[in-house]
């Protein structure tokens, strides 16, 4: 089965969604980003997606209305099919509590949102290189 280049992203901040989209287009145009404004949307989309169309990576904000990123993460990791998808937490917070709880809840990586566009480009590059080129992710959904 061939790998797709899908990344599902849940973030309630429209600015951040646009910046991330722009950075990926500029830095890693091969990646296809699908944006959701909150966790609910993300989860329902994921559960309704056929296996071969599931994303290779999920980028998840923590601070979202209705359902927090932690709750989304917990549900993802409790789901028999979705649990294998790596989740990168990307949030404004750098609180130690948030970092440790994220990893405890099963996130694969924790990233604090950069404060400059250059840093964002850097981050997009690293993310793509790592998750799409370096590591082998589980693909038998």
């Amino acid at each position: 089965m061939a790998y797709n280049n899908l990344i599902f992203t849940a973030d309630d901040d429209e600015d951040d969604r646009l910046l991330l989209q722009q950075a990926f287009q500029q830095q890693s145009p091969g990646c296809q980003l699908v944006f959701f404004a909150d966790g609910d949307e993300l989860l329902s989309a994921l559960t309704n997606t056929p296996p071969h169309e599931l994303p290779r990576l999920i980028i998840l904000d923590l601070n979202m209305p209705r359902m927090s990123g932690f709750e989304v993460l917990k549900r993802l990791k409790a789901h028999p099919r979705l649990r294998v998808i790596p989740v990168v937490i990307m949030t404004t917070s750098s609180r130690p509590e948030d970092i440790s709880l994220s990893y405890q809840s099963g996130s694969s990586s924790f990233v604090t949102k950069p404060a400059s566009y250059d840093r964002l480009l850097e981050l997009v590059q690293i993310t793509r290189q790592y998750w799409f080129e370096t590591v082998t992710v589980y693909s038998e959904f």
Partner: peptide, 25 residues
């Protein structure tokens, strides 16, 4: 407060910095 501050205070600031940076570049 700490939880709120670490997100809600930082969020707009980060935007100020971010767009300022974009402006400069």
């Amino acid at each position: 407060f700490s939880a709120v501050a670490s997100h809600d205070l930082q969020e707009p600031l980060r935007k100020v910095k971010f767009y300022g940076d974009m402006l400069l570049h």
